[in-house]
């Protein structure tokens, strides 16, 4: 028997709807589950006090501070490299073998799993350069990891600045660098910032690459130098979840809730920023 095409269409549409809803439902359930179990324990006191008894008691203040230092350091290192790369690719060259090599490098870097970055950071920064387990080793490793994200978004942002802006700038007698600095970069800024914010989020959620470079030591004070070893939120959560006792599980949940909440805020603001930015030139 031949099923009428119209019926097949309706049937397939139903299947596709339900598959998509299942995917979205899983997402909402995951976020909801973590926040539901974690937020009740994530009190202001938890956020503003130092951890005690390997994290089973007290709060996560030093962990939050360590996380911020590492991810801000990583982005501070990666931004000039990434934005510089994007400016070169968009404003200073045509497509040729050099740009192909650069793009190939960035694409490969984007595909490398975080555990490989962890291995590399461990042998190169921690051991060979003698930086030990530290904020600096962690930031350097994460900087390499977030480079492709920053390059890609900055490239998209620069390309979305209309060609006419550049022509007008030249017509007024500006040099190429003046044009880039005064016309293109300000125009592309929100898009570039989006990439930086996305990179912050990626660094924050990373575990495998920082656990071997920033270490697992749980500091009982706010770190004061880039040479201090710290534990990031994700690493702290992982260790509480896998090595902690049943008493430390509420703290694990609370840490997870803070982590997920922070990443949600970071990603939603990045998307809003990009959306507004792209609408500007449409």
């Amino acid at each position: 028997m031949r099923i009428p095409p119209r019926a097949v269409h309706v049937g397939m549409l139903g299947i596709l709807w339900s598959v998509t809803l299942a995917a979205i439902g899983t997402l909402i359930w995951i976020i909801g589950w973590v926040l539901w179990h974690g937020l009740p324990s994530a009190t202001p006191h938890f956020l503003t006090s130092m951890p005690q008894d390997s994290g089973a008691e007290g709060g996560i203040l030093s962990v939050i501070a360590g996380t911020l230092f590492i991810i801000l350091g990583a982005v501070a290192l990666a931004t000039p490299l990434g934005v510089g790369t994007a400016i070169y690719l968009v404003e200073y060259t045509r497509e040729n073998w050099v740009t192909r090599v650069i793009r190939y490098g960035a694409d490969c870097l984007a595909g490398i799993p975080s555990i490989i970055f962890g291995l590399f950071g461990y042998v190169f920064f921690v051991i060979t350069l003698g930086l030990r387990w530290s904020i600096l080793s962690g930031s350097l490793t994460l900087a390499l990891m977030s480079l492709p994200t920053i390059i890609r978004t900055a490239e998209v942002a620069l390309r979305s600045v209309p060609q006419g802006y550049r022509e007008v700038s030249y017509a007024l007698g500006a040099t190429r660098w003046q044009m880039v600095l005064r016309v293109v970069l300000p125009g592309a800024l929100p898009g570039i910032v989006t990439g930086i914010v996305l990179a912050l989020g990626r660094c924050m959620s990373e575990t495998a690459a920082v656990i071997f470079t920033a270490g697992t030591v749980l500091p009982d004070r706010i770190p004061t130098s880039p040479g201090d070893s710290v534990r990031t939120l994700a690493v702290h959560f992982y260790l509480l979840a896998t090595e902690g006792t049943s008493e430390s599980q509420p703290k694990a949940f609370a840490t997870a809730a803070i982590l997920v909440l922070a990443i949600l805020v970071i990603n939603v603001s990045a998307y809003t920023l990009m959306h507004r930015f792209l609408a500007r030139y449409r």
């Binding site: 995951i30 989020g201 959620s205 575990t207 959560f237 992982y238 997920v260």
Partner: peptide, 10 residues
């Protein structure tokens, strides 16, 4: 964006 450790915990 959800950290892989959170997926692992679930």
């Amino acid at each position: 964006g959800i950290p892989s450790v959170v997926f692992g915990y679930i």
